[in-house]
Design a protein around this nucleic acid. Structure first.
Lengths: 135, 135
DNA sequence: GTATCTGCAAATGTTTTGCACTCCA
DNA sequence: TGGAGTGCAAAACATTTGCAGATAC
C-alpha cells in the first residue's frame, strides 16, 4: 500500500505508514478516532488532525474507501474496490457483504446525472447479535 | 400523513403537524436544521430539539425516511418506501433516483445476517452542476 | 530549499441530554 | 390527570481550520 502513496504524489511519513498498517487486513472498518486511539500509545506525538488529514488523502487517492453508513461518524475500509456494507442496528458493527447485485457500471450517465460510484448499504442484525437475542 | 401519527400511538401536536407539512411533497431532502429554519419564523416557540425528536419518532414509525448519504448530516425524505438517492459532490443536493435495481426482497436472511432494509446511494454530479461545468 | 505535512488548540456544526414545564388524549 | 411531548441551555461528539514549526524528497 505504501508504494501507492508515492504513485499519488503523497509523501511517505511515519504517521501515514502507521495509519496504513492499522488499516491493512483490517475488517473492522475503524473510525478516525479508533485509529487514533490504537496508535496513540505507541506514537504519542500523533495528532488526531493528522489522522483525519491522512484518511482524507488516502480516500481521495483511492487507496482506501470512506464508508458512509453510520449516521454518527465515518468509517474506513482498506479495500477501495466497490463492495457493499452492513451495519448492525444493535451493536453498530460494520461488515463487508459479498453479494452480487447487478448495478450499471460506473461512471455512467443516467437521466443527465453523472454517476461516479454507487454504494449499497444493508441494515439489520448481525449474526453475533442474533445469537444473543432472546425475544 | 397525520392519521399515521395516531396509528403509531404518537400524539398529534402543532409541532408535528408543522414538520409534516414542511416534508409533505418535499423533494429537497431537508436536514433537521433546515426544517427548523423554515418553521422558526412563523413558529418562534419551536425548539430544535423538538425537530430532532419528531424526525426520529416519524422515522421509527415508518412515516418518513432518514437518508444517510451525506457524511455531515442526516436528511429526511417524506417517502418511506425504499428507493435510491443521489448526492452531488459539487452542490451536495440530494435527489431521488428511480432505477430498477434487482435487490433481494427485505427482510431476508443472508449469511446469518438478518437484512432488514437496503439503501442504494449514488454519488456524482447533478444535471445543474454539469451544465455549469466548464472544464 | 521548498512545498507538503504535522501538531496543537480553538472553532464549527450536528446531535443528544437533563430537566422543568406544558398539553394532548 | 397522567404520560408523552416540548423548550431551553448545556453538553457531547465528530470534524475542520489556522497557523507555526518540522520534515520528506
Amino acid at each position: 500500500m505504501i508504494e501507492q502513496l508515492r504513485n499519488h504524489g503523497l509523501k511517505i511519513t511515519p504517521q501515514r505508514i502507521a495509519i496504513l498498517n492499522i488499516l491493512k487486513d483490517n475488517t473492522t472498518h475503524p473510525s478516525a478516532e479508533e485509529i487514533y486511539g490504537q496508535l496513540k500509545p505507541n506514537f504519542p506525538s500523533l495528532s488526531l488532525a493528522t489522522v483525519y488529514n491522512t484518511l482524507e488523502a488516502l480516500n481521495r487517492a483511492g487507496v482506501i474507501q470512506e464508508v458512509i453508513i453510520d449516521p454518527r461518524k465515518r468509517h474506513y475500509d482498506p479495500n477501495p474496490k466497490p463492495h457493499s456494507h452492513f451495519q448492525c442496528r444493535n451493536c453498530s458493527s460494520i461488515f463487508d457483504i459479498a453479494i452480487g447485485i447487478e448495478l450499471p457500471p460506473t461512471p455512467c450517465q443516467i437521466d443527465d446525472f453523472l454517476m461516479e460510484y454507487v454504494t449499497i448499504n444493508w441494515h439489520g442484525i448481525c449474526p453475533q447479535c442474533r445469537a444473543k437475542e432472546t425475544d
